[in-house]
Design a protein around this nucleic acid. Structure first.
Lengths: 153, 153
DNA sequence: CGGGGAATTATGGGATTCAATGGGATAATC
DNA sequence: GATTATCCCATTGAATCCCATAATTCCCCG
């Protein structure tokens, strides 16, 4: 199961550690770096999280742009430079650096929010509000989605 | 793991040495030259850094251009002629030559800035400003990126 | 259906390791 | 001989490992 689903709320201990939800750890297993890559969302008070494999694909995509171009530099400065490699300890925890805590306004509780291929890390309170607003926007706009590919069950 | 991620700020000692971040050293391991290749960015007050392997690829790319063309000559002059091989000492440090320090206006603190397949070396203060501008440009232009490769993470 | 383990997960804290840094001693270079 | 580079070791603070315990979920059997 390689999907990040559901929302989990865990505690930040006094060393700055949090348990990554077990199902997220499962989704991350088998990657070349045992941990998560996280960077500040540039639109939200939240942290974007994913496995290193997806990051590698992002890097390959950026490599298709012109080397030394402004676009390439801007993207790498906001994504790669800002991202942190947070490795899992033996008990499945990471330590969240202060920079990320500040950006997401996280104090003692941490929400891990599944988004399919990636996930986000929030202050639980702020996420609840955000989710409510998102639901309303979806309803107003009657947003829909086209399905790709085929089922294989 | 062959990606340069995150930003690390280390100190320049009075002998002109800096520690290369451990995760960068990991990304450089296994290459034919144990150290980094660095040259002055021709657009920014920064130093471009990478492993020797990527330098080889850059050389191959330049080889695709017309021999003796002006572009080819300009590129080789600004990149290959300008680059320095900085070897790692036993403790994972390099010596930054004065030419590079001057160009990047580095005094006592050095920022190693990950860019995926490569990295940059900055004066931390200057990079912070640059990163802020880059973030804004990304937002304004709604710069996006198509993900390459297959979707199975 | 429901209770009682058994396994898994989350969390707290002590002990250990490792990265970054400073500096002395030795070797190479001009 | 002076300057610069390399090697080696000491220190410190942070990250990691390791174990203990608490909470939760799962599962089997009554």
């Amino acid at each position: 199961m390689k999907l990040f689903l559901s929302t989990f709320i865990n505690k930040l201990d006094k060393k700055g550690r949090v348990s990554v939800p077990a199902s997220f750890r499962l989704a991350l297993s088998g990657q070349s770096f045992q941990g998560i890559v996280a960077f500040r969302s540039y639109k939200l008070s939240a942290v974007e999280g994913m496995g290193i494999d997806r990051m590698q694909r992002l890097s390959d995509s950026v490599d298709q742009l012109d080397l030394f171009s402004e676009t390439q530099d801007d993207l790498t400065a906001t994504i790669f430079a800002d991202s942190q490699m947070l490795s899992l300890d033996g008990d499945g925890r990471i330590i969240l650096p202060g920079l990320l805590l500040d950006h997401a306004k996280i104090k003692e509780e941490v929400a891990f929010v599944g988004r399919g291929a990636t996930f986000q890390i929030w202050n639980p309170k702020l996420f609840e509000e955000h989710q409510e607003e998102a639901r309303q926007r979806v309803q107003e706009k009657q947003a829909t989605l086209k399905l790709r590919g085929s089922d294989e069950s």
